[in-house]
């Protein structure tokens, strides 16, 4: 394609092989440069075991480990944060219903849930 795109640069009074080889050499050098710059930003890792994201593809042991980690993360929360998570995320109450149950305002409850999730994420990342 490169040869085709610059075919108008060929001078019939000059030999064709230097013209062709120059284009070829340049394109090979360009490809090698792109490849080396791509490889420079990659890191070789060990072969990762294939897995799937669905919960039903996990082994019983994996599922048990996840539940334990979540319980530990929940236990690390403050009482207010734990209550908010249990009402809204585990029991499935709406934010209005949870606000009525806890006596907190809706905005305050939202902030509490946000902070609780952040703290649980940090706890789970530490575990891994």
């Amino acid at each position: 394609m490169s040869v085709h795109s610059v075919r108008h640069t060929f001078d019939p009074s000059r030999p064709i092989m230097p013209w062709l080889m120059t284009i070829t050499a340049r394109r090979i050098a360009d490809a090698a440069r792109r490849s080396s710059s791509r490889v420079a930003n990659e890191t070789t890792v060990e072969t990762m075991p294939e897995t799937f994201s669905g919960a039903d593809t996990k082994s019983t042991q994996d599922t048990s480990d996840d539940q334990e980690a979540i319980q530990i993360a929940l236990a690390s929360l403050s009482d207010g944060q734990r209550e908010a998570i249990q009402l809204m995320k585990l029991q499935g109450l709406s934010v209005q219903e949870a606000a009525e149950r806890t006596g907190k305002s809706v905005p305050a409850l939202k902030v509490t849930v946000h902070r609780a999730i952040k703290a649980m994420r940090a706890s789970l990342q530490r575990k891994t």
């Binding site: 394609m1 490169s2 085709h4 795109s5 394109r27 360009d30 490809a31």
Partner: peptide, 18 residues
């Protein structure tokens, strides 16, 4: 920069490497 002609048709996943 090299400006390669656009070609329509063919396999959608095939890349023109020039």
């Amino acid at each position: 920069k090299w400006s390669l002609p656009k070609i329509d048709g063919g396999d959608s996943g095939h890349r023109q490497t020039g």
